[in-house]
């Protein structure tokens, strides 16, 4: 893997719809927006619930475990801040299977369908923190705490 020749791509973190996701990530918390009335997950985050048509959304902390939905190992270099190869994973949350989030693993990662994944929080510079995903390293039961990087 070659070294990056410029900074990696950072997200806008103060968007009115998605900002709270990244604000929570900075606290090492994984949050998803839900409709406070019908409990539907509003992800990607939006103000109004498409079922209730109410602006009653709430950000709630969710368990940081999931399963691999799909992936791709990127071999063709496009952005100089993201040297190839690397593997992008699409992870479906265990607790809310209708919610999917992306993660990235270095190199040609060995990934399997439905592989158990856990969240961790990556400091990517400029004060930005990304929720990231890696193969589950600790045996967990539904009662144990979310396996976050620093136990936050």
């Amino acid at each position: 893997m070659s070294a990056p020749t410029q900074a990696r791509v950072l997200p806008v973190t103060d968007d009115p719809d998605s900002g709270p996701f990244f604000e929570a990530a900075a606290r090492h918390e994984l949050v998803i927006r839900f409709c406070g009335r019908c409990e539907r997950a509003l992800h990607l985050p939006k103000a109004f619930c498409p079922d209730c048509h109410e602006d009653a959304g709430e950000w709630r902390r969710v368990q940081g475990t999931g399963r691999v939905h799909t992936w791709t190992t990127v071999e063709h270099q496009v952005h100089p801040g993201h040297p190839t190869p690397y593997t992008v994973v699409v992870v479906q949350l265990d607790e809310h299977p209708e919610v999917r989030l992306l993660g990235s693993l270095p190199g040609r990662a060995e990934v399997r369908p439905d592989q158990a994944m856990e969240v961790w929080f990556e400091e990517v510079g400029d004060g930005v923190v990304l929720p990231q995903w890696r193969p589950t390293t600790v045996a967990t039961t539904p009662d144990t705490a979310t396996p976050e990087e620093d136990g936050a």
Binding site: V9, P11, D15, T72, V74, V88, L101, L102, V124
Partner: peptide, 26 residues
């Protein structure tokens, strides 16, 4: 900075999901 402005690309580009080819590969 990537995304914002109702593009929602902030959930994708920082993870290296950046081109149509990568989307269709997934």
């Amino acid at each position: 900075r990537a995304g914002g402005g109702s593009t929602f690309e902030e959930f994708f580009l920082p993870y290296g999901m950046q081109t149509p080819g990568q989307y269709f590969a997934a």
